[in-house]
Amino acid sequence: MKDETSQVEQRVKRYWYSDGIGELMGGGMFFLLAVYFSLQQYLGDRSLVGGMLQAGFILFLIGGVFVGRRVINIVKTRITYPRTGYVEYRTNNKNANLMRLLSFGVAMTVAMVSVFVVRRFDSIDAMVAVTGVLVAVIFTVKQGLTSGVGRFYFLSATSLVLGGLLSMSGFARGYNLGLFYGLMGIALAISGGLTLRRYLQENPMPTEAVNE
Protein backbone atom coordinates (compact mmCIF):
# COMPACT_ATOMS: atom_id res chain seq x y z
CA MET A 1 0.00 0.00 0.00
CA LYS A 2 2.88 2.30 0.87
CA ASP A 3 4.29 1.86 -2.65
CA GLU A 4 0.96 2.63 -4.32
CA THR A 5 0.50 5.71 -2.15
CA SER A 6 4.02 6.88 -2.99
CA GLN A 7 3.27 6.37 -6.69
CA VAL A 8 0.17 8.54 -6.48
CA GLU A 9 2.08 11.20 -4.54
CA GLN A 10 4.92 11.21 -7.07
CA ARG A 11 2.44 11.41 -9.96
CA VAL A 12 0.99 14.55 -8.38
CA LYS A 13 4.51 16.02 -8.05
CA ARG A 14 5.39 15.04 -11.63
CA TYR A 15 2.32 16.86 -12.92
CA TRP A 16 4.12 20.22 -12.55
CA TYR A 17 6.65 19.09 -15.18
CA SER A 18 4.16 17.41 -17.53
CA ASP A 19 3.80 20.41 -19.88
CA GLY A 20 7.48 21.48 -20.16
CA ILE A 21 6.58 25.11 -19.44
CA GLY A 22 8.96 25.27 -16.47
CA GLU A 23 11.85 24.11 -18.66
CA LEU A 24 11.01 26.62 -21.39
CA MET A 25 11.05 29.37 -18.78
CA GLY A 26 14.31 27.97 -17.34
CA GLY A 27 15.76 28.02 -20.86
CA GLY A 28 14.78 31.69 -21.15
CA MET A 29 16.50 32.44 -17.84
CA PHE A 30 19.63 30.63 -19.02
CA PHE A 31 19.65 32.70 -22.24
CA LEU A 32 19.48 35.88 -20.16
CA LEU A 33 22.40 34.64 -18.05
CA ALA A 34 24.31 33.90 -21.28
CA VAL A 35 23.75 37.48 -22.45
CA TYR A 36 24.63 38.79 -18.99
CA PHE A 37 28.01 37.01 -18.75
CA SER A 38 28.96 37.70 -22.38
CA LEU A 39 28.10 41.39 -21.99
CA GLN A 40 30.06 41.62 -18.78
CA GLN A 41 33.09 40.07 -20.46
CA TYR A 42 32.73 42.38 -23.46
CA LEU A 43 32.33 45.56 -21.40
CA GLY A 44 34.88 44.68 -18.70
CA ASP A 45 34.69 45.36 -14.95
CA ARG A 46 35.99 48.92 -15.23
CA SER A 47 33.26 50.32 -17.45
CA LEU A 48 30.23 51.87 -15.75
CA VAL A 49 27.72 49.46 -17.33
CA GLY A 50 29.99 46.47 -16.62
CA GLY A 51 30.30 47.50 -12.95
CA MET A 52 26.55 47.98 -12.70
CA LEU A 53 25.96 44.57 -14.24
CA GLN A 54 28.29 42.96 -11.72
CA ALA A 55 26.70 44.76 -8.76
CA GLY A 56 23.19 43.91 -9.90
CA PHE A 57 23.73 40.18 -10.32
CA ILE A 58 21.85 39.11 -7.18
CA LEU A 59 18.95 41.45 -8.01
CA PHE A 60 18.93 40.05 -11.54
CA LEU A 61 18.73 36.48 -10.20
CA ILE A 62 16.03 37.16 -7.57
CA GLY A 63 14.00 39.26 -10.02
CA GLY A 64 14.38 36.59 -12.70
CA VAL A 65 13.11 33.83 -10.41
CA PHE A 66 10.19 36.00 -9.23
CA VAL A 67 9.16 37.09 -12.74
CA GLY A 68 9.75 33.58 -14.12
CA ARG A 69 7.43 32.06 -11.52
CA ARG A 70 4.72 34.61 -12.36
CA VAL A 71 5.05 33.99 -16.09
CA ILE A 72 4.89 30.19 -15.58
CA ASN A 73 1.66 30.63 -13.61
CA ILE A 74 0.13 32.86 -16.30
CA VAL A 75 1.07 30.45 -19.10
CA LYS A 76 -0.14 27.40 -17.13
CA THR A 77 -3.45 29.19 -16.46
CA ARG A 78 -3.94 29.53 -20.23
CA ILE A 79 -2.54 26.19 -21.40
CA THR A 80 -2.40 23.56 -18.65
CA TYR A 81 -5.14 24.19 -16.11
CA PRO A 82 -8.05 24.26 -18.61
CA ARG A 83 -6.77 21.03 -20.22
CA THR A 84 -5.67 18.79 -17.36
CA GLY A 85 -6.51 20.68 -14.18
CA TYR A 86 -5.02 22.81 -11.47
CA VAL A 87 -2.84 21.69 -8.56
CA GLU A 88 -1.45 23.90 -5.84
CA TYR A 89 1.66 22.49 -4.22
CA ARG A 90 2.66 22.74 -0.58
CA THR A 91 5.57 25.11 -0.30
CA ASN A 92 6.60 24.93 3.32
CA ASN A 93 6.33 21.35 4.43
CA LYS A 94 9.22 19.86 6.39
CA ASN A 95 10.26 17.42 3.65
CA ALA A 96 10.52 20.15 1.02
CA ASN A 97 12.66 22.29 3.31
CA LEU A 98 14.84 19.32 4.18
CA MET A 99 15.23 18.49 0.48
CA ARG A 100 16.21 22.11 -0.27
CA LEU A 101 18.74 22.07 2.55
CA LEU A 102 20.10 18.73 1.34
CA SER A 103 20.34 19.99 -2.27
CA PHE A 104 22.17 23.11 -1.09
CA GLY A 105 24.54 21.05 1.06
CA VAL A 106 25.30 18.58 -1.72
CA ALA A 107 25.76 21.40 -4.27
CA MET A 108 28.16 23.31 -1.99
CA THR A 109 30.17 20.18 -1.17
CA VAL A 110 30.44 19.21 -4.84
CA ALA A 111 31.42 22.79 -5.72
CA MET A 112 34.17 22.91 -3.08
CA VAL A 113 35.56 19.52 -4.08
CA SER A 114 35.42 20.54 -7.76
CA VAL A 115 37.27 23.82 -7.09
CA PHE A 116 39.94 21.90 -5.18
CA VAL A 117 40.36 19.34 -7.94
CA VAL A 118 40.12 21.72 -10.89
CA ARG A 119 42.62 24.21 -9.41
CA ARG A 120 45.31 21.63 -9.78
CA PHE A 121 45.10 22.03 -13.56
CA ASP A 122 46.15 25.48 -14.82
CA SER A 123 44.71 25.07 -18.30
CA ILE A 124 41.15 24.54 -17.03
CA ASP A 125 38.54 27.28 -16.45
CA ALA A 126 37.41 26.25 -12.97
CA MET A 127 34.38 28.55 -12.94
CA VAL A 128 32.58 26.94 -15.90
CA ALA A 129 33.53 23.42 -14.76
CA VAL A 130 32.11 24.06 -11.28
CA THR A 131 29.00 25.70 -12.78
CA GLY A 132 28.49 22.58 -14.91
CA VAL A 133 28.74 20.35 -11.85
CA LEU A 134 26.43 22.60 -9.77
CA VAL A 135 23.74 22.78 -12.44
CA ALA A 136 24.01 18.98 -12.91
CA VAL A 137 23.58 18.40 -9.16
CA ILE A 138 20.55 20.70 -9.04
CA PHE A 139 18.93 18.89 -12.01
CA THR A 140 19.62 15.49 -10.46
CA VAL A 141 18.78 16.14 -6.81
CA LYS A 142 16.13 18.85 -6.94
CA GLN A 143 14.38 17.87 -10.17
CA GLY A 144 15.19 14.27 -11.05
CA LEU A 145 15.10 12.53 -7.68
CA THR A 146 12.14 14.44 -6.24
CA SER A 147 9.92 14.25 -9.33
CA GLY A 148 11.14 11.02 -10.92
CA VAL A 149 11.14 12.69 -14.37
CA GLY A 150 13.82 10.99 -16.47
CA ARG A 151 14.66 13.87 -18.83
CA PHE A 152 16.22 15.84 -15.96
CA TYR A 153 19.00 13.24 -15.77
CA PHE A 154 19.69 13.87 -19.46
CA LEU A 155 19.86 17.63 -18.79
CA SER A 156 22.12 16.91 -15.84
CA ALA A 157 24.48 14.88 -18.04
CA THR A 158 24.40 17.65 -20.70
CA SER A 159 25.46 20.18 -18.07
CA LEU A 160 28.36 18.00 -16.92
CA VAL A 161 29.59 17.41 -20.49
CA LEU A 162 29.26 21.10 -21.46
CA GLY A 163 30.96 22.27 -18.27
CA GLY A 164 33.80 19.80 -18.83
CA LEU A 165 34.32 20.63 -22.51
CA LEU A 166 34.06 24.41 -22.14
CA SER A 167 36.45 24.42 -19.18
CA MET A 168 39.16 23.35 -21.63
CA SER A 169 38.11 25.63 -24.51
CA GLY A 170 40.57 28.44 -23.73
CA PHE A 171 37.92 31.19 -24.16
CA ALA A 172 37.75 34.13 -21.75
CA ARG A 173 35.80 33.24 -18.59
CA GLY A 174 32.77 35.48 -19.33
CA TYR A 175 32.37 34.10 -22.86
CA ASN A 176 32.84 30.57 -21.53
CA LEU A 177 30.05 31.05 -18.99
CA GLY A 178 27.94 32.78 -21.64
CA LEU A 179 28.42 29.81 -23.96
CA PHE A 180 27.62 27.35 -21.18
CA TYR A 181 24.36 29.08 -20.25
CA GLY A 182 23.47 29.68 -23.89
CA LEU A 183 23.91 25.99 -24.81
CA MET A 184 22.12 24.84 -21.66
CA GLY A 185 19.33 27.29 -22.54
CA ILE A 186 19.02 25.58 -25.94
CA ALA A 187 18.98 22.13 -24.27
CA LEU A 188 16.24 23.26 -21.88
CA ALA A 189 14.26 24.89 -24.68
CA ILE A 190 14.43 21.70 -26.78
CA SER A 191 13.47 19.50 -23.81
CA GLY A 192 10.64 21.83 -22.76
CA GLY A 193 9.47 22.39 -26.35
CA LEU A 194 9.24 18.67 -27.12
CA THR A 195 7.45 18.02 -23.83
CA LEU A 196 4.98 20.84 -24.49
CA ARG A 197 4.32 19.57 -28.03
CA ARG A 198 3.59 16.06 -26.75
CA TYR A 199 1.44 17.45 -23.94
CA LEU A 200 -0.65 19.52 -26.37
CA GLN A 201 -1.06 16.54 -28.73
CA GLU A 202 -2.17 14.25 -25.91
CA ASN A 203 -4.42 16.80 -24.20
CA PRO A 204 -6.64 18.82 -26.51
CA MET A 205 -8.69 21.64 -24.99
CA PRO A 206 -11.94 20.17 -23.56
CA THR A 207 -15.07 21.36 -25.31
CA GLU A 208 -17.11 21.66 -22.11
CA ALA A 209 -15.99 23.26 -18.85
CA VAL A 210 -15.58 20.81 -15.97
CA ASN A 211 -14.98 23.23 -13.09
CA GLU A 212 -18.43 24.72 -12.82
Binding site: T5, V8, E9, G85, Y86, R90, V210
Partner: peptide, 21 residues
Protein backbone atom coordinates in the same frame (compact mmCIF):
# COMPACT_ATOMS: atom_id res chain seq x y z
CA UNK B 1 -9.15 6.56 -0.98
CA UNK B 2 -7.64 7.63 -4.29
CA UNK B 3 -9.18 11.10 -4.02
CA UNK B 4 -7.90 11.56 -0.47
CA UNK B 5 -4.42 10.25 -1.41
CA UNK B 6 -4.20 12.71 -4.30
CA UNK B 7 -5.34 15.58 -2.09
CA UNK B 8 -2.89 14.62 0.64
CA UNK B 9 -0.02 15.01 -1.85
CA UNK B 10 -0.94 18.60 -2.75
CA UNK B 11 -2.13 21.73 -0.99
CA UNK B 12 -5.23 21.63 -3.20
CA UNK B 13 -6.41 20.34 -6.57
CA UNK B 14 -9.30 21.21 -8.84
CA UNK B 15 -12.19 19.06 -9.99
CA UNK B 16 -10.72 18.44 -13.45
CA UNK B 17 -7.40 17.22 -12.10
CA UNK B 18 -9.12 14.90 -9.61
CA UNK B 19 -11.41 13.57 -12.31
CA UNK B 20 -8.52 12.75 -14.63
CA UNK B 21 -6.21 11.32 -11.98
Amino acid sequence: LLIVTILSAAASADFLFLQRE
